[in-house]
Design a binder for these strands. Structure first.
Lengths: 159, 159
DNA sequence: TATATACTTGACTAATTTACTCGGGTTTGA
DNA sequence: TCAAACCCGAGTAAATTAGTCAAGTATATA
């Protein structure tokens, strides 16, 4: 599992699709403009995302991409793995049985962590992020209204 | 937050120190041999780990590195950040107020995730990994003993 | 004090990956 | 038909990784 800006681009783009797909397929040109990612790079990323069955493509004018499944069913981990083709082969798999002086143990400890990491990334979905943000947005809005009301009250009391 | 093989090397090396420091400071040459990481590369990594106050160095013959604090107090996140000097500056920080058409929202969603990720990495410590592994090791040992006993019983019954 | 051990630092480099460009396709709605 | 959009592969500059080399400096110990 690798986590670089490539994965960030992919997740960002997927979030963009999730946010805009209610008005039909989302075309890459729009994502490119909104998220400032080069069109050709997006093409490469979406080629992989499509092969991973995370999005469906609609060709021709008015076409674009749609999520292949619900946003809540798409994990961040799946998106990141989809665009990082080379799976890191960390563990000393058979070739030379690892010096008994500690290498295997350290590797197995790293694998423990790697597994935890994977589980974590699989447990967070695009949909969850969006839902969280809605809650926060609503809460912020309420605070603003509250603040405004306080201001009005305050003004009234003073004036 | 970036997660590449550089971070893996750093965590692996720190685990090696944690596992061997009971017999005094651990020198880089030993880590290099056990974990198959080039000495010079380890020097670079430990220079950063030392600056991050995660290890202390002991110079001269018999010297090496020690954890600066207890293994349970060193998070994987801290180790990874220590060796990745360039913090990814994802968020559109002020420069141009982000097109209102969606960029800011997507970025803030990514930041939500990034925060979760950071919290997760901060929540796992070197010590925790080691403790887990001990439990697993003991359990494996018991299984082996059990298996051996079964073999003996079986042999006796047949012979 | 001499000396070997081991950390410290910085400059340099090959290999790899990332992020991107270019130039062509193909599909399809209007 | 035509233009919008996906599709595909080759190529490439920039960045990063992983590593080398060559000097140091500090210090335990003989």
């Amino acid at each position: 599992m690798k986590l670089t800006s490539k994965g960030r681009y992919a997740v960002t783009a997927m979030l963009d699709v999730a946010l805009h797909q209610n008005v039909g397929p989302v075309c890459l040109a729009d994502i490119s403009e909104r998220q400032r990612i080069s069109l050709s790079y997006l093409e490469q990323l979406f080629s992989k995302l499509r092969k991973a069955k995370l999005v469906n493509s609609v060709r021709g004018p008015g076409g674009g991409y749609r999520l292949a499944i619900a946003a809540v069913d798409i994990s961040i981990g799946a998106v990141i793995i989809a665009v990082n083709d080379s799976v890191i082969a960390t563990q000393c798999k058979g070739e030379k049985p690892c010096t008994p002086s500690g290498r295997c143990l350290t590797h197995s400890l790293w694998n423990d962590f790697s597994k935890k990491m994977q589980d974590f990334l699989d447990s967070v979905s695009l949909g969850e992020l969006m839902a969280n943000s809605e809650v926060i947005a609503i809460s912020k809005k309420q605070n603003m209204v509250q603040g405004l009301q306080n201001d009005i009250l305050h003004t009234n009391q003073l004036g």
